[in-house]
Simulated assay, not measured.
Amino acid sequence: MTDTLTSRPVTAPGLRRFARRFRANRLALGALIVLVVLVVGAAAAPWIVPYEPDAIDVMNRLSGSTPAHWLGTDSLGRDTFSRLLVAGRVSLFAAAIAVAIAVVVGVPFGLLAGYCGGWVDWLLGRAADVLMTFPAIILAIAIIAATGPGLTNAMIALGIVYSPRLFRVVRSATLAVRAETYVEASVSIGTPASGIIARRVLPNILSPLLVQVSLMLAAALLAEAALSLLGLGVVPPTPSWGNLLGRGFTEIRSTPLLVVWPGLAIAVATLSFNLVGDGLRDSLGRETRKGD
Rank of each mutant, 00 (worst) to 15 (best):
I156A: 12
S63R: 09
T2E: 10
D54Y: 04
E224S: 05
T191S: 13
R253P: 01
D57G: 11
A96Y: 10
R178K: 13
S214V: 02
V58E: 03
G190F: 07
T152C: 10
S214R: 00
T2H: 08
V90E: 09
T181W: 12
V90G: 09
A226G: 10
R165D: 15
T4R: 09
A43V: 07
A225I: 10
P108D: 11
A87M: 13
F273D: 09
T238C: 10
T181F: 12
S228D: 07
P67H: 13
L29F: 07
L206T: 05
L275A: 12
S228H: 08
R89H: 08
R171G: 14
I252T: 02
A185C: 15
I143S: 01
S63G: 11
V213M: 02
L139N: 13
V86D: 10
R20G: 01
V201M: 01
I137S: 08
V49R: 00
P13V: 09
W261T: 01
D54K: 03
R171E: 12
V276P: 06
D74M: 04
F81Q: 03
V161F: 06
L222S: 11
Y162K: 01
N25M: 10
L84N: 05
A173I: 13
I160M: 12
G64K: 13
L271D: 00
I143F: 00
M1I: 14
R178P: 12
W241R: 04
A68M: 06
L280V: 04
I205G: 02
S172F: 00
F93L: 08
L84Q: 03
S194E: 05
P108E: 07
L166Y: 08
G263F: 04
V260D: 02
S7C: 00
V170W: 03
R199P: 07
F134V: 03
I33P: 03
R78S: 14
A265T: 05
A142E: 01
R126P: 13
L71G: 02
Y51M: 11
L258Q: 00
F167R: 07
G114N: 13
L84G: 05
S194F: 07
A157H: 12
L76M: 12
V40A: 09
S65Y: 01
L27D: 15
N204P: 02
G72Q: 03
I189P: 10
G231I: 08
T152I: 15
T255G: 04
L131R: 06
G148H: 03
R126C: 10
A223V: 08
T4Q: 13
V187H: 06
P203L: 02
L230E: 04
W241G: 11
M155L: 05
V49I: 02
I48H: 04
G285F: 00
A128M: 08
E180D: 14
C116E: 11
S188L: 13
T133V: 14
A100V: 15
S186L: 15
T133R: 14
A267S: 06
A173C: 14
T250I: 05
I101A: 12
V58A: 11
H69F: 02
V103Q: 01
